[in-house]
Design a protein around this nucleic acid. Structure first.
Lengths: 235, 235
DNA sequence: CGCGCCCTTGACCAGACTCAATATTAGTGG
DNA sequence: CCACTAATATTGAGTCTGGTCAAGGGCGCG
């Protein structure tokens, strides 16, 4: 069943962010109430079910949040990079496990300290709202997009200023971009709700169509950003 | 590929919520700075792309947030009922459309009023964190569960105190429960990332297995709550 | 009673998964 | 620097779940 968009042009308007003051947060980090933690690639920060008494900010690197089903199926639910907040929970326990994708440094703060500091709330709210919006998009990806569209959408995430509401277009030169995935095929599959084989096949198909060139397993050249963008299902 | 849970018993611990003071929010609503809005079944509150200058609380009824792809595919990303907050955005525009599932009354407040009121922030943060946790679970459902597990999981949402971390078990009597879906098959399908036909087939299969009895299209008796629960893939 | 809407059921099809074999890559030690 | 190994990625063949298309059923409402 196909629905009709109420007003096609509605979303075209640039999603210009409302001014956001994060100085209170920067100050909090600097003040020494947050410890710096350095982690290697694929180290875990905490597991689902652990007590949630610290919250984290990605200072450098990238972290994934994932959940496991008892039979071993895994779903990566969020990927966080610089500035992303995680570990804050409504309840007492972590609802996800957290693991670094690459070597990372985190700022770890005590939950009570953060909750007590009123001046931090607006920054936290902002971060949560951004996460929520990303999760909404990801829900559409998982619920309604096919494998090709999922991978194309995934690739577009690595190209800032392109594909979104205020996309700048291809520019005068060749429309290519080199991106660093920093994720294994398995991690990509678990993020996109696919299997490793399907992800691999889609990449191969994209290569055959000259949409991308795989320079190394985790290093790809998107030869035709606009071409990929048209295959995301979103435009 | 199957992963192994790090510590199977970890999540068993009851997710008892940390004390949460929402008196400031109640006061805000009562103060008259939030208008009461009454809407009929299937009326829309706003569309994706509209300016987001009001935020809403579901006082009574239920609301769904959904997104459309340009070719007409729809994904319901959230379902909110009493106490649920929606319409708050990181940017200037709504990232989803909102529509009532049943006749509902909402509290509508001006975004600026809410953002200015520091005493409301902790309530908002709490609501966002709960939404985030539900979306994480939904991500697992969409990314990793099959049709049967999706429908079973969906049904369990209507049975409070059962199926979750602190499930009370079947109790002494027959393990049945009558639930009111308040959604059409199409809405259920769009929420679970399935088609209307698949949802219908799964309900029929469940009926055949005496797991449920369809008393009316939107009114079902779950004959065996524990039986359904075992089929969610989560336990 | 009849119309329209929603739901159910069936037959068929296709996209993604599974299992298995092979190819690459990265890492290790000689 | 190269050989060897382990881990990761690719490719192929076959299967199956869930989608598509089409027909029929049930229910509420005028």
């Amino acid at each position: 069943m196909a629905y009709k968009m109420p007003c096609a042009g509605g979303i075209a308007e640039r999603l210009s962010d409302i001014v956001h003051d994060e100085s209170a947060w920067t100050e909090f980090i600097r003040s020494g109430r947050a410890k710096k933690v350095s982690l290697a690639e694929h180290e875990n920060v905490y597991f689902e079910g652990d007590r949630a008494d610290r919250i984290y900010e990605v200072a450098d690197g990238a972290v994934m949040l994932y959940k496991l089903l008892p039979d071993g199926r895994r779903q990566v639910v969020e990927i966080l990079s610089g500035g992303g907040l995680f570990g804050l929970q409504a309840g007492e326990l972590h609802d996800c496990s957290a693991e670094t994708l690459v070597a990372s440094t985190l700022h770890a703060a005590d939950r009570r300290d953060v909750e007590a500091a009123n001046e931090l709330q607006s920054h936290i709210t902002r971060c949560l709202l951004e996460q929520l919006q990303i999760l909404h998009d990801h829900t559409v990806l998982l619920g309604r997009k096919n494998a090709f569209e999922r991978v194309a959408t995934f690739l577009m995430r690595f190209v800032p200023l392109r594909g979104g509401a205020g996309c700048l277009g291809p520019g005068p030169d060749a429309d290519d971009r080199v991106i660093l995935l920093a994720m294994t095929r398995q991690e990509i599959a678990d993020y996109l709700g696919l299997t490793i084989e399907t992800v691999s096949r889609i990449f191969s198909e994209m290569r055959r169509r000259n949409l991308v060139a795989v320079e190394r397993h985790d290093r790809m050249r998107i030869c035709d950003v606009c071409g990929i963008c048209r295959l995301t299902g979103t435009h």
